[in-house]
Design a protein around this nucleic acid. Structure first.
Lengths: 254, 254
DNA sequence: TAGACTGTTTCTTATTACGCAACGCTGTTT
DNA sequence: AAACAGCGTTGCGTAATAAGAAACAGTCTA
């Protein structure tokens, strides 16, 4: 642990929390003091402070200290405050730098995907015309990535409501084919858009899960089909998968 | 805060966390220092310490400080350690399947109820943002179920400390009425929340007793008032009562 | 370009949290 | 029954430590 700029007693308090969090049954003052190699009374006073705020609770019978419910209070506030866009931004920037391709972030809303962020290569664009646009789910990489992980009943509903309209000659329009495509996506963990939405554009996309495990968003790397060869896709794949997984973690998905 | 066994810097750190948790967008060092009426550098060092442990994160762009994800880590450990939760889980899942309504599990803590589990219909939700929320006891089904079985002196104390604040026009705010309501709950063995906490939501709830016979927790089935007719409640009642009784047995209550 | 903001760092002072030791208390051992 | 050993808790003097004032290094604004 870095020793710079730290407040010792706060640091100790956080170490105590970490220690207490590891023992379900709780720990005693002396036990903690021994393990941390500091004085009993110091531990006692820190525990008292934490207890006053509900971060730690003392069992009335055993006298042992365990985690308190204030952690749940704070966590629920934290979960409420998470904004996908701001959380994803740095990861997308990094992915844009590494791949030097166009990166999109979309959220799932009313049977469609909505573009909420775009990065191009190394530079962060201030205004992107595509942000805010809606696109169908069945013919986009991001849409398929989300559909593959939605409850199958929901997916069926969406297909029923929206159909599988043709966008290019590569669009999958057969229901059975489309469902098995989604199965394949789920197995691989990522989806491909092989000119299904726009001729000449190929994408690789992954879903993003929120704290409750719902596929609420997706991101994609897209480029001209000529450049997006099988080798190039194989090369991009791990970066895309990792970025998606990192963002999901930031959203509280465990 | 009253007791003087407290470590000042730890206390300050916890105050800062509380402050930060209230602003989704985060707060700056100076902002916090002004609100707490202490020096900037003190705030800065405490924030640095909290940040090293991941309890607070600094936004790279704005420099503002927000809650960090360590709270989620600790909370998930806390939830694992609550044995009522693990014991109750299968029963709640079953009840969710049978009723196809939202099931909540709460524990009694510091004059309030804390939500520690939520099931929706057939599917088990991961950590939902409602988990960790606190609610008053007097206007919730789960709260009334617990209050009805606490020693009357304790119940009186809680009413005295917390009062009977209005939440909706259906909230019981008269002390005498409320006490006779609790008597009725105890006679029936279950409580009802008839839009007393939130308009449009009706609940049926039962207490859960630990090995010593204390009402340490409660569970509820809740749904939209339109759907929760008298007949529906009569239909749900036996399932809810049985689930509560089964969980109490698992906790050693005889 | 000057100014008003940030967050960060430095340094000095006395505040403050630390460690020591003793206190009740409980349960066990002799 | 009595002595002991363990616990969490408390009081106290001292020295380490965290707090504060002020300067620093950035960024954005006008």
């Amino acid at each position: 642990m870095e020793r710079e700029n730290m407040v010792k007693s706060v640091s100790r308090a956080l170490d105590i929390i970490a220690l207490v969090s590891m023992k379900k049954e709780g720990l005693g003052v002396t036990e903690i003091a021994n393990q941390m190699d500091i004085n009993k009374s110091s531990v006692y006073r820190i525990l008292s402070t934490l207890a006053q705020y509900g971060y730690i609770e003392q069992n009335a019978d055993s006298g042992r200290y365990r985690l308190g419910y204030t952690f749940l209070d704070i966590s629920s506030k934290l979960l409420d405050s998470i904004d996908i866009r701001t959380e994803a931004k740095p990861y997308l920037q990094e992915l844009g730098k590494v791949t030097d391709e166009v990166i999109h972030l979309v959220v799932y809303d009313h049977d469609e995907v909505v573009y909420i962020e775009k990065f191009e290569g190394t530079e962060t664009l201030r205004m992107h015309s595509k942000v805010g646009r809606r696109a169908p789910m069945h013919c986009t990489g991001v849409g398929k990535a989300i559909l593959a992980y939605l409850p199958s009943a929901t997916t069926e509903d969406i297909i029923h409501r929206k159909g599988l309209p043709v966008h290019t000659k590569y669009t999958i329009t057969d229901r059975a084919n489309f469902l098995s495509e989604l199965e394949a996506v789920k197995q691989r963990g990522y989806s491909l858009d092989l000119q299904e939405n726009e001729v000449g554009i190929t994408c690789i996309a992954v879903p993003i899960f929120d704290h409750a495990g719902n596929p609420v968003a997706a991101l994609s790397v897209s480029g001209p089909t000529i450049r997006m060869t099988d080798e190039r896709i194989e090369e991009l794949k791990p970066h895309v998968l990792e970025t998606g997984s990192n963002i999901s973690k930031r959203l509280g998905y465990r």
